[in-house]
Design a protein around this nucleic acid. Structure first.
Length: 703
DNA sequence: AGGCTCTCTCTTTTT
DNA sequence: GAGAGAGCCT
């Protein structure tokens, strides 16, 4: 095995990269000879369950694509193959690479997210799933609105309880298919509130003909519990492949088992060391006990890494091996050692930002592209200091994630109008739009209408239709209701029946008639803002057009609404040709790779996050997060922390993360100080060395 | 109904 | 220190 030189020129680095990243090659040609032994074994495996433990950068996706292509080449009808991913993005990527490798037949393979798969089953088995036609899907925002409304209405919890937390409790009871929420501690307001609201939540969802994201999995599971239905679906898919298996929940596993049936041709691919979504229901245990769920499982380990240098892998391995419960594997690479991983102790948060931005500028000066560089952190707030300095220094950058997407009120409103047109029982949507744009129906009037709707058992929409006979409404409210009903009712039927080609036009007309554009223009936002919001509104109509073009004609509106709940509308800067430095959370970075990576703010309370430590959370998951971050780096990795940091408005003393102490300093990892507050270099070095020997002592690690 | 001030908290996030 | 949300005031 040749050892690439560590220090030499960019050219060497470039050539080496080409040689060892065949999986990213532009035109991947089907060539079994390009696979390593375990990869080949996974691709050639015939029938029966298989678990592929794919370490970071081990060519995981490529194995999936190759396996599918191989099955198709061996005569399996592509329509009989089901590939399941977690995100739309992953599904899209897989589709592209598959069509490239397998040709047009690759397009016939079913690739979908878990939730889209659930929806498909529920849609086709709607009655068995206990739903009426035109049912709608509630996203997290809708769920929260519902919980807030319920809290207001029942008064059970009108004090300052966090609706999100109440919702979380309701959902976890629902996931566990419990009859109710248990009141563990007599006095606990949250227990009491959740116990009271749980049955109401279920009843409301039923009344609104709505299901939430969890229901997509749970109801599909219910439907498949019926033998005839199950057999039908089992017959449809003869081979299943599941990506990112470490992120599956127990419910998803149940669904998979039902689909796999007696054939058990199920291949799951994942990495227990990259399980970082335990907090949202993923069961890392799924991957560890896959062999129990499917006896006779063939287990394959992909531990050859094609991404990072030896030093980076050694450092990452050293950290992750401190996790007690994991599948033993150790990433290795045929590449060279590369440059040492640098741990940088900074004086303050400002020093840290200065160091990172300075290094970035140096890299750019040496010819690196900005999009080969990433700054990764635990929590979104940590991006601030880096954003500011990068902006000041005019280094192009983009911040991934945050919220932004969510709060496009005008988009949500427009969609809510369509949702009501489709399903007048959808009261979350109806409440949202009833007074937006303003029609004189304030909170008091709305509550009266809701009450009337409940009393008559006909719902809010019916109450609006007969607003004239509802007690205690103001004249303006009655007029407002009449106006809303007058516009929406006659259009609703035509919208529901609209075929491809007319739906988008009709929506546009509806929006105009409702005065959505005017409302945006009248609102006294800054001119730039209202222009943006108008654009967003147009974007809605455009997305409907897109949908019309690629969908079969029947029930277009209902399908559009459901699919828009499952796929985020495209962000603003989809196509951006300029190379930019990427700033994002460690979570968001999973699955990506960069030539140069800065892991910043690696301090106690931040990387093992305070909350995890306090709330008896999962320290191992924090360590995996660190591992995920480190393994994003191809060539160079910096890990930085600050001794003092301005937080919550005050200067805080900080300690390096315990994960830093787990690094093999001296063996491909170097440390140094970056403190501008006037300490001499010798002192700084001494401090760093002292720090590490103290840390090692404390943790009982040999030098 | 809307705007203002006070108070509280301060992960991660896809579907 | 900053943003969100509740409550109070006009």
């Amino acid at each position: 095995m040749h050892r690439a030189r560590n220090t030499k020129s960019k050219r060497a680095g470039g050539a080496r990269r080409d040689a060892r990243t065949p999986r990213r090659a532009r035109h991947d040609r089907f060539d079994l000879g390009s696979l390593n032994a375990p990869q080949l074994e996974a691709v050639l495996h015939d029938d029966g369950p298989m678990l592929v433990l794919a370490g970071a950068g081990s060519g995981k996706t490529r194995v999936i694509i190759y396996r599918i292509t191989r099955l198709v080449r061996d005569g399996v009808p592509p329509g009989q193959i089901l590939g399941v991913t977690f995100t739309n993005k992953a599904a899209r990527e897989m589709r592209e690479r598959l069509t490239e490798l397998a040709g047009p037949r690759g397009a016939e393979v079913h690739l979908s997210t878990f939730h889209a798969l659930g929806l498909r089953i529920i849609r086709e088995e709607r009655e068995a799933a206990g739903l009426r036609a035109g049912f709608c899907i509630y996203d997290t925002g809708d769920q929260l609105s519902l919980v807030r409304d319920m809290m207001r209405q029942t008064r059970v919890a009108d004090r300052r309880l966090d609706p999100g937390r109440v919702l979380e409790m309701i959902l976890s009871a629902k996931r566990g298919r419990l009859a109710g929420v248990e009141v563990d501690h007599e006095g606990d307001e949250y227990d009491v509130a959740a116990a009271e609201l749980y049955p109401r939540y279920v009843a409301q969802m039923r009344a609104f003909n709505a299901i939430d994201f969890d229901d997509l999995i749970l109801r599909a599971q219910d439907v498949l519990a019926q033998p005839l239905v199950r057999e039908r679906w089992q017959a449809r898919f003869s081979y299943m492949l599941v990506d990112e298996y470490q992120d599956t929940s127990p419910d998803q596993l149940t669904l998979l088992r039902a689909l796999a049936g007696a054939k058990r041709n199920i291949c799951v691919v994942g990495d227990d060391d990259q399980s970082i979504y335990g907090w949202r229901g993923a069961a890392a245990g799924n991957i560890l006990s896959f062999g129990k769920a499917f006896p006779g499982t063939r287990e394959i380990i992909l531990d050859q890494n094609y991404r990072s240098t030896q030093y980076i892998l050694q450092a990452a391995n050293a950290v992750i091996q401190n996790n007690a419960v994991r599948k033993a594997k150790r990433l290795w690479s045929a590449g060279g050692d590369g440059e040492a991983v640098e741990v940088v102790a900074c004086g303050t948060g400002d020093d840290e930002a200065a160091f990172v931005v300075d290094r970035i500028q140096q890299l750019l000066y040496e010819g690196a592209r900005a999009d080969e560089i990433a700054i990764l952190y635990r929590a979104n707030v940590q991006s601030r200091a880096f954003e500011e300095l990068l902006a000041l220094e005019r280094v192009p950058f983009r911040v991934v994630g945050g919220q932004a997407f969510f709060e496009r009120k005008e988009v949500r409103d427009a969609i809510a109008y369509l949702a009501v047109a489709q399903n007048p029982l959808d009261e979350v949507a109806l409440r949202r739009i009833v007074n937006s744009p303003p029609r004189g129906i304030g909170l008091t009037s709305l509550e009266r209408l809701v009450q009337h709707g409940e009393n008559t058992r006909k719902g809010l929409w019916a109450a609006l239709v007969q607003a004239g006979s509802v007690d205690g409404l103001s004249v303006s409210a009655v007029a407002g209701a009449a106006q809303l009903v007058g516009v929406l009712a006659p259009r609703a039927r035509r919208l529901r029946a609209a075929a491809a080609g007319e739906l988008s036009r009709q929506c546009q007309e509806l929006f105009d008639q409702l005065g959505l554009r005017d409302a945006i223009l009248t609102a006294d936002d800054a001119p730039g803002i209202s222009a943006k919001r108008l654009e967003n509104l147009d974007e809605v109509v455009r997305s409907i057009e897109m949908f019309e073009r690629q969908s079969p004609a029947a029930l277009l509106l209902a399908e559009y609404l459901r699919s828009s709940a499952l796929t985020q509308l495209p962000g603003e800067d989809g196509e951006d040709r300029q190379a930019r430095v990427t700033l994002m959370t460690l979570h968001a970075a999973k699955g990506l790779e960069f030539r140069y990576v800065f892991l910043v703010g690696i301090e106690e309370d931040a990387l093992p996050h305070r909350k995890t430590l306090e709330e008896g959370g999962d320290l191992a998951e924090e360590r995996r997060l660190c591992y995920v971050g480190m393994t994003r780096a191809r060539e160079r990795l910096w890990i930085t922390w600050a001794r003092r940091r301005l937080r919550y408005g005050r200067l805080q003393e900080r300690a390096a993360s315990r994960f830093i102490a787990e690094l093999p300093v001296g063996a491909g990892v170097t440390t140094h100080e970056h403190d501008t507050s006037g300490v001499s270099e010798e002192e700084q070095d001494q401090m760093a060395q002292d720090f590490f020997s103290r840390m090692r002592d404390r943790l009982g690690i040999d030098d």
